[in-house]
């Protein structure tokens, strides 16, 4: 029993390490792209520490570099990050008690560690997965950004390595067990369909939030049709 547990933990840590490594490489490209777009070396570093949300950071740099209004770029970034609000409700108890843990744990909240936490059955493992992945990605992401910003365009196109496919695959692999439940699967499929349909028309971030409508769509008919 104990050895099984230890193997499970080692597997979990190895999986988390892989995600940290991948995020570190994306951080490398973020630093390199930001500097390549003409930002000072400290800009991607500052953003990675205080914002710590890859998609919003890429969006901010991209919009401002393209001559966009910085206020609009901040709002676009906030819209992309609004999904952390429902994430926080789902994994809030994983952070633990006390303000220190809540503050640090909140700042470390990511798609990846939320998905890792949700994929664990046991509360203790959920906590380990959330914190390990959060701290690991924070360290790797920031180290990658520093290296990329200093070294310049060493790796600027991570699409060449297929890393853009790795990120959704990570989330998909972690979410798949939860989709065994029929109602959750219905909600997820409906939500994904709504997000895809809205994507061509709405700014980034909003389509994913609209996916929450899937929760209603899948829940209402079941409750009415309950025998």
């Amino acid at each position: 029993m104990r050895s099984t547990q230890r193997t499970l933990d080692r597997d979990l840590l190895r999986d988390i390490a892989l995600v940290c490594l991948a995020d570190g490489i994306v951080g490398l490209s973020y630093g390199a792209i930001a500097v390549g777009e003409g930002f000072a070396v400290w800009v991607p570093m500052l953003m990675s520490v205080v914002v710590f949300a890859g998609a919003a950071q890429f969006m901010f740099i991209g919009l401002v570099a393209a001559g966009g209004n910085p206020i609009a770029a901040v709002l676009a970034g906030l819209l992309v990050n609004a999904r952390h609000l429902p994430f926080g409700f789902a994994v809030g108890d994983v952070l633990g008690r006390g303000w220190g843990r809540r503050i640090a744990g909140s700042h470390l909240m990511l798609d990846e560690n939320v998905a890792f936490a949700l994929a664990q059955d046991d509360p203790a493992r959920r906590r380990v997965a959330y914190w390990t992945c959060g701290i690991g990605v924070f360290v790797c992401w920031n180290a990658g950004v520093v290296a990329g910003a200093v070294a310049g365009t060493a790796i600027s196109d991570t699409d060449l390595f297929g890393l853009d496919a790795a990120f959704p695959a990570v989330l998909l692999a972690l979410v798949l067990p939860a989709l065994k439940d029929r109602r959750t699967r219905l909600a997820a499929l409906a939500g994904a369909a709504v997000a895809l349909a809205a994507s061509p028309f709405l700014p980034a971030g909003l389509p994913v939030l609209l996916a929450l409508a899937g929760v209603l769509l899948a829940w209402r008919p079941r409750e009415k049709a309950a025998p």
């Binding site: 999904r83 429902p86 994430f87 409700f89 789902a90 994994v91 798609d111 939320v114 998905a115 949700l118 959704p168 989330l171 998909l172 972690l174 979410v175 939860a178 989709l179 109602r183 959750t184 909600a187 997820a188 499929l189 939500g191 994904a192 369909a193 709504v194 997000a195 895809l196 994507s199 389509p207 994913v208 939030l209 996916a211 929450l212 899937g214 929760v215």
Partner: peptide, 13 residues
């Protein structure tokens, strides 16, 4: 469920 739906939508988009 909401978190799973959000993650699924992130995967799709």
């Amino acid at each position: 469920t909401s978190a799973v739906v959000l993650l699924a939508a992130l995967v799709a988009t």
